[in-house]
Design a protein around this nucleic acid. Structure first.
Length: 542
DNA sequence: ATAGGGTTAG
């Protein structure tokens, strides 16, 4: 590899022979030059060739300069690329589009949009590459408004029949949680390929509509003109995981093996995740151990899987194993570890990991990590620390919602009304999950016996039209899905379930694990009666 | 010359 690089370097210089002379290059030399820049993948080469081009006066040649821009982008020197762009007398579509996609690979999608606006103000017209790129920026930002604007321009410029542009539109609508729009675009497409089908499946899978994702997958298979690839299979398994479909998950696992994708890291990660979410931790572990040289992603999935099943110690072992193998943990890995510690009561170890993130592993804690720690501390009743930590960081509305939401539900469980009030105030301020905040706070009042406050809050909800959709869980048995709504036991064998819960509660109390279960997830006005009824019943019973 | 899809938490 090293040899090839230095060879490139030499040939770059040789192919130019430019020093001093400003003679136009021969076609042959230009081609040689372009080939050299294309293969460059180190930091020195673009700069070196840049200076050669500068001396030769070739910087006015748009094609040559575009190659230089791409050279800088490939070697991750986006600001240099932009500088070259700025000095171009006549940038064309490629110059603009290259820089735009450069900004995306530099994880600066905002600047990609900015470049697109610049382009719009110039006389250069966008092409299908430009649109695919800018739509991609919108989906990374999950910016529906921008996405729709760009979609309008796609129609205006006549790219609505372009396969790639439409695939990225499907993806964009999916990432913006507008699955029905995604379906609309998908249905309007004349040409479809594995990528567009995968985008559609992913859109459903990532929006909690696993059934429809599987339906689309079935439709794809019925066409029988292309076989699913690893991208598609990963997405389908994700759909199974998020809707708890073990049987479909196993069937898809079969397809993964048949198509020879079982050695793929990411596919294995989705399988680990799917089995863990469907309750089969043993299968999850088996799939994980079969991965040769797992990278950070399967490790993280397995850490999550163990943590979810209450094996926090195993999560920690996996983390340490990973570090020993010199695999660098990322931000998600730490969420997983902290989450695992939190759910297994390994608070001190969790705090230790949290404090070592930055200096030991080079991962700067973000809001989501603070949220985990707040969760960890408040779970065991260390509210004052949790509250202090939550107050100490700056968050955007979205992050604030999960941060204060975590604190709110924990403080309700522990009956810390003061913190519950404070947390819900902040939650309502963040203008996210307002419905949930109202309900949880009102439940906290109920728990503290402050019925009047609870009623006031209910009234306020009615006035402002805030209404909470009832939460639910479900399980698939054979071909049927059984759905259970929060606060509702009016299904078959409901009383049996309640009796079982009481029994579990008794055992937990005996082992000192719980101060008592809370059965007050009043989600709807109409259910208040039944819940009150239970509450009284539960209080009456010893 | 420049473009599209997969994973991990709550």
């Amino acid at each position: 590899m090293k040899k090839r690089l230095s060879h490139n370097l030499v040939s770059a210089v040789n192919s130019l022979h430019l020093s001093g002379s400003s003679k136009p290059l021969s076609f042959h030399k230009k081609t040689r030059f372009i080939q050299t820049v294309q293969t460059c993948n180190n930091l020195v080469l673009p700069t070196l060739t840049h200076s050669k081009i500068l001396k030769s006066g070739l910087l006015n040649d748009t094609i040559i300069t575009n190659h230089l821009i791409n050279g800088y982008i490939k070697s991750q020197q986006i600001s240099q690329a932009h500088q070259v762009f700025d000095e171009m007398p006549e940038p064309n579509v490629v110059s603009y589009t290259s820089l735009m996609s450069g900004y995306i690979s530099a994880s600066k999608p905002q600047l990609c949009l900015w470049m697109f606006r610049e382009m719009h103000n110039s006389l250069v017209l966008p092409n299908e590459f430009t649109f695919a790129t800018v739509v991609n920026a919108c989906s990374i930002l999950a910016d529906l408004q921008k996405g729709k604007q760009v979609h309008g321009l796609v129609e205006v410029f006549g790219f609505r029949f372009n396969l790639v542009v439409c695939s990225s539109l499907v993806d964009m609508y999916g990432k913006c949680n507008e699955v029905d729009f995604a379906q609309l675009v998908f249905d309007s497409m004349a040409d479809k390929n594995v990528v567009s089908w995968t985008s559609m499946i992913t859109a459903y899978a990532q929006n909690g509509r696993g059934n429809e994702a599987l339906e689309v997958f079935r439709e794809f298979n019925l066409l029988d003109w292309e076989i699913p690839n690893k991208f598609m299979l990963a997405s389908v398994i994700n759909a199974c995981a998020s809707s708890g479909k073990l049987v479909s998950g196993k069937t898809t696992h079969g397809a993964v093996i048949r198509h020879g994708h079982d050695s793929n890291d990411i596919v294995a990660s989705t399988l680990v995740d799917m089995y863990a979410k469907c309750g089969c931790i043993v299968y999850a572990a088996r799939v994980f151990r079969r991965v040769q040289n797992p990278c950070v992603i399967p490790y993280t999935s397995m850490i999550v899987a163990a943590g979810k099943h209450g094996h926090g110690k195993v999560s920690i072992e996996l983390f340490e194993e990973m570090i020993d193998k010199r695999i660098k943990p990322n931000d998600v890995t730490f969420v997983a570890v902290l989450h695992a510690c939190s759910h297994s009561g390994l608070v001190d170890q969790g705090l230790e990991y949290f404090n070592s993130m930055s200096w030991k592993h080079g991962v700067v804690p973000e809001a989501k990590h603070y949220t985990c720690v707040v969760d960890m501390l408040s779970r065991i009743g260390r509210f004052d620390e949790a509250y202090r930590l939550a107050k100490s960081i700056k968050v955007n509305p979205n992050e604030g919602a999960s941060l204060w939401g975590t604190l709110l539900s924990a403080s309700r469980l522990h009956g810390r009304l003061d913190i519950a009030v404070e947390a819900s105030k902040r939650l309502i301020e963040s203008d996210q999950q307002v419905d949930g905040a109202y309900v949880t706070l009102s439940n906290a009042y109920v728990l503290a016996g402050e019925w009047e406050n609870a009623n006031d809050l209910r009234k306020k909800m009615k006035q402002t039209g805030v209404c909470k959709e009832p939460g639910c869980s479900w399980i698939d048995i054979k071909d049927s899905t059984y759905v259970f709504y929060a606060g509702n036991i009016s299904f078959k064998r409901g009383t049996e379930v309640l009796r079982m819960l009481k029994e579990l509660e008794r055992e937990m109390k005996e082992k000192g694990r719980s101060k008592g279960l809370v059965f007050v997830d009043v989600e709807e006005e109409a259910m208040e009666e039944t819940v009150d009824h239970w509450l009284k019943r539960l209080n009456r019973e010893p």
